[in-house]
């Protein structure tokens, strides 16, 4: 028995030696960044590009991990659960804190267990139709929907996503009679649009921009706040007189109560990253446009968005549990 114990000890010690830790001020060890979407998506790509720049600034590795699933809530809850020493942070999307917690119970309080360190990149969305669709402007399309009540279908990337809610709210404000078809993610929604199985979808521009350039997909209306660089002629919702838009940023969150010094350092590092020329150039190739926003400002924005959408959920036909 003794021999078993000692040989076991030997193995453990050998392995433990590999994980020694150095001592210094913050950041004294690598920082873990939990990306709440799968590897290879737009969020992941942008986050990794900025993390590698932030690594240079902080002079300490920012290690990316993917924790995808359940609308981004899995990754966010992992951050909320982590120790608030500033060595675990994560990416976050708007619904994971402002919408989903109002639809179903999640194991974190979105505004108490988490703080927004900074917002890095607005997602850009649009209402899209097939390239050979008969409508060239938003007005044409709306006129068609009104003439053909109950015939038009719109696809979203899932129930309760901003894509669904915004499109449903447009329908409600304009009193349109159209049907919602939720798909499992943007890829399947785009495939259904290209195949002509749904008439219109709401999706991120970055994921379809190649098809837009090739003329296979047309954008009718930009639902995010600003016009999109690749389609400068397409109007935004605001220009069409809507009082709301589809706002969601990729932000960096940390568990509540992390040291102020750490929060500031992370925020500053990512500010440098988001404004770095190299990062802007590489994200630009994918039509992603980073834009830094201070954490406190974004937190206030999120709280108002949560109120704005929360009241509408039931009306828009989302089952609230």
């Amino acid at each position: 028995m003794k021999r078993i114990f000692f040989s076991m000890l030997g193995v453990v010690l050998t392995l433990a030696l590999c994980t020694s830790v150095m001592a210094a001020d913050y950041p004294k060890k690598p920082i873990k960044l939990i990306i709440n979407f799968s590897a290879g998506g737009t969020t992941d790509t942008a986050a990794r590009l900025m993390a590698s720049k932030a690594t240079e600034v902080l002079n300490q590795a920012v290690i990316c991990m993917n924790k995808k699933g359940a609308g981004g809530t899995l990754g966010v809850s992992e951050v909320a659960r982590a120790r608030n020493d500033g060595y675990t942070i994560g990416t976050c999307n708007m619904p994971a804190v402002a919408i989903i917690p109002q639809i179903r119970e999640v194991p974190y309080k979105p505004f108490e267990d988490l703080i927004q360190v900074c917002a890095l990149m607005p997602y850009e969305y649009a209402i899209l139709v097939r390239g050979d669709a008969p409508w060239n402007t938003w007005e044409d399309f709306i006129a068609y929907v009104k003439e053909n009540p109950g015939k038009v279908t719109y696809g979203s990337v899932g129930t309760g996503t901003t894509n669904h809610l915004v499109t449903a709210r447009i329908g409600k404000e304009l009193d349109l009679d159209w049907r919602h078809v939720p798909f499992q993610g943007g890829v399947k929604a785009t495939a259904a649009l290209l195949g002509g199985h749904v008439d219109v979808i709401n999706n991120t521009m970055a994921s379809v921009v190649s098809s837009v350039r090739a003329g296979k997909i047309k954008a009718l209306l930009i639902t995010s706040e600003n016009r999109f660089s690749a389609t400068p002629d397409v109007p935004t919702m605001k220009e069409k007189g809507f009082g709301f838009s589809q706002i969601s940023y990729m932000s960096v969150v940390a568990p509540a109560g992390i040291p102020e010094e750490a929060r500031k350092m992370i925020s500053d590092a990512f500010k440098v990253a988001a404004e770095d020329k190299g990062v802007i150039k590489s994200t630009g190739k994918l039509d992603l446009h980073p834009k830094f926003m201070d954490g406190k400002e974004y937190q206030t924005l999120l709280e108002s968005l949560a109120k704005e959408w929360g009241g509408l959920l039931k009306e828009l036909g989302v089952k609230v549990q």
């Binding site: 290879g40 290209l194 190649s210």
Partner: peptide, 23 residues
């Protein structure tokens, strides 16, 4: 720009990271 299988979806990420937007 639509991956046909699970691993193809992951490989799409590699295209994107290298600035090749599939489509």
């Amino acid at each position: 720009g639509i991956p046909g299988a699970l691993s193809a979806a992951v490989i799409m990420g590699a295209f994107m990271i290298h600035g090749l937007a599939p489509g």
